[in-house]
Design a protein around this nucleic acid. Sequence first.
DNA 1: TCCTGCCATCTGCTATGGCAGAGGCCATGA
DNA 2: TCATGGCCTCTGCCATAGCAGATGGCAGGA
Lengths: 246, 246
Amino acid sequence: MSAAAPHPVERLAEEDTLSLAERAYRRLRDAIVQGTLASGSRVSERSLAQALGISAQPVREALRRLEQDGMVITLPRRGTVVAEFGPARQAEMGRIRAALEGAAAALAAERADAAALAALATQLAAMRAATEAGRPERVSEANERFHALIHAATDNVFLIRSLAALRAYDHFGRVRALNATPEELPRALAEHAGILAALQARDPETAEARMRAHVLRSLEVGGLLPHGLKTQGLKTPGPKTRTPPV
Amino acid sequence: MSAAAPHPVERLAEEDTLSLAERAYRRLRDAIVQGTLASGSRVSERSLAQALGISAQPVREALRRLEQDGMVITLPRRGTVVAEFGPARQAEMGRIRAALEGAAAALAAERADAAALAALATQLAAMRAATEAGRPERVSEANERFHALIHAATDNVFLIRSLAALRAYDHFGRVRALNATPEELPRALAEHAGILAALQARDPETAEARMRAHVLRSLEVGGLLPHGLKTQGLKTPGPKTRTPPV
DNA sequence: TCCTGCCATCTGCTATGGCAGAGGCCATGA
DNA sequence: TCATGGCCTCTGCCATAGCAGATGGCAGGA
């Protein structure tokens, strides 16, 4: 169970100051999304506690959070098992994430302050540089940070926590999507630019529509959604609302 | 702290079989939304445990869930405080809920089976009967059940749990909205009928759009959103009123 | 008066132990 | 052979106790 933490943004917080429960949560979550803990595996508080070298109490707390995330299912007095984790599940979590990311973008468009917008611009520049340099892994990092900054700009704990959990689901799917085709990197970059422009323009509707379309399209590229699915439920950026360069 | 449970659907599960942590969670949540536990109140595991007559462990578990819901804020080793809970917060939670309810409706349109659709039709009939009889409280109950059935039809634990938490936020706001004007009851009924029709037609897009509009409009009636079109015309309350807790 | 360092006390956090429900196993009996 | 009931072990759940970080008050010294 030596799962390499796949979340660069969370790595910023030094491991030592985190509670045992938080560390157990991340390790278990990463193990699940990586497949180290296969679907259907029975996990008990005591066995995990022994494996992790800690007490059963923080393990229990971690399992409760994972249950809220839908990653494990626990039947009272009977046991806890890892939930099924196929592509279908990931696809549906991705669609939920698209809805929530859209809501986050709308809120961010209303209340992001100058500092937040500046930080977003910084990450966008980093993403552009990494794209031109042909460094997908750096693009991925900047991508995660860009979205995390938008979440933080909403100043809404529920959104931040929910989206963190949802993004954990297909983190590797996004990495795979960015490496799918050569034109994927510049396209993702352009979409980010369009989103930031909507945020700067204080346009919640456009920000939400663009963010939602961006997430859904990246899901398609990652192979989690059939191509050409309905993104037209929302108004997609038409020729009029074309994303201006930068 | 004798908070009357405002959630009729959750009342169905008998109190005795529930875990102490679950009961503590519901009691605290209801106390917060009712205002019995005012925003800014300091709540500690030990004091709440003594007040509830149980150990500190289940209380801690309840507080962790409330923290995920954004209802309390806990600073490590320092304390736990009830989060601010003004109309602005409720409005933003309502908008998030609109997005998630829309996603739930879309999923339900794809995978609701005949039994689920029949149950929805039953609740719709009950809502119609209660509307014609002029019984707002019964309309409210049928309303909650209708939405809960859609959530259940998604078969997605994350959605079900998240929406349960979000709906707790403005439960009383919805009750107030239903009693706002005489024409509100039949309008909500008509909207529900339209949503069910979209579900029966297996039309995710329409279901999502109608559900989203339905939630947003009910928020407006409840006074949580300014009247107007959708998310349009939202007055930005200024950049990020960050209030450092305590 | 102001600063400084100690200490009592609060908090969340973790470890440990035990309780009760839920199956599984196996001897017993028909 | 098959049903049955007692036991045994597993599980999640809860209570208790103690630890460590954070805070505030207060005495003592400049």
